[in-house]
């Protein structure tokens, strides 16, 4: 792995938000964040609300420019990639709220058909349909049940799976999952996480998994970055960070996570 270029390399990323005209208030949402994601890795960004996890993700997705710092995708500065489609062929995202990811006016099929614009090669309509049906069966959705429906007719879990199907059609090298399960029922949540892990193994893409739920981060990730007030306070392998936390903040954080199989001494 040493001579191989990491999939994603984030270097000294900083984002400062400025608001106000006369009384200017500055908030540094992300300050001096650096980490790398290698091929096939699942890296979790863990932190409480307001710690800058989603801002980091938005910068990596080129949804907002950083104040300073650089992001390299396979060694190439992402802000030098001019053509948007070139970038989004390689980096894809699943957001928190599945309902907000769909246009309510259109049938959900449109999302999958449009996804072919970001896939290499040209396909006839018939080929597209075949690929879609095959992909949907891979993620455990019955094509007859979901195709031709509108977003409000499906549950959050189904829509989130559907968005994963879209990712599979595009075949990116990096998937950014920003709290993908927080709006899904507890009983379906494990299914989505298992599916994500399975697909990652089959398709061999890397994942940046953003969550406030420490249990989920432990369940899915290989590497963990703990964020606090815009900074990464601790980073390391899953077993090391969660088994032997070094930073006092990580220790306090892990100490507060309720465990299903034991009680706190209150």
């Amino acid at each position: 792995m040493t001579n191989q270029e990491p999939i994603l390399k984030v270097e000294n990323l900083t984002k400062i938000f400025i608001s106000g005209l006369i009384n200017i208030v500055t908030v540094s949402a992300v300050s001096d964040v650096s980490f790398t994601i290698d091929e096939g890795e699942v890296v979790s960004l863990v932190g409480e609300s307001g710690s800058g996890k989603s801002t980091t993700a938005n910068i990596i997705l080129k949804l907002m420019p950083p104040t300073s710092g650089q992001v390299f995708l396979q060694g190439k500065d992402i802000f030098s990639i001019r053509k948007r489609t070139d970038f989004y062929k390689k980096v894809q995202v699943v957001f928190q709220d599945p309902y907000a990811s769909f246009n309510l006016v259109y049938k959900i099929d449109r999302v999958l058909y449009n996804a072919f614009n970001l896939r290499k090669g040209s396909f006839s309509k018939h080929e597209k349909k075949e690929i879609i049906i095959e992909t949907l069966s891979k993620i455990g959705l019955n094509a007859d049940e979901v195709l031709g429906r509108y977003p409000h007719q499906l549950s959050g879990g189904q829509l989130q799976r559907f968005l994963l199907a879209r990712v599979l059609i595009i075949k990116p090298i990096l998937l950014i999952a920003d709290e993908p399960t927080s709006m899904i029922d507890a009983s379906s949540r494990a299914g989505i996480l298992n599916l994500l892990e399975e697909l990652r193994k089959d398709e061999n893409f890397s994942v940046l998994f953003i969550t406030h739920d420490i249990a989920q981060a432990q369940y899915i990730s290989t590497k963990v970055c703990v964020m606090k007030n815009g900074e990464i306070v601790e980073t390391g392998l899953n077993e090391t960070v969660f088994g032997h936390p070094q930073h006092p903040y990580t220790q306090a954080l892990l100490d507060s996570v309720p465990d299903l199989h034991s009680r706190w001494e209150l």
Binding site: R189, G191, L193, N194, A215, Q218, N238, F242, G243
Partner: peptide, 17 residues
């Protein structure tokens, strides 16, 4: 199906939904 945290650092077993 509950994703639960293991304080000893071992990764949880595969969950069913």
């Amino acid at each position: 199906s509950i994703v639960s945290f293991n304080p000893d650092g071992t990764r949880p077993a595969v969950l069913r939904s």
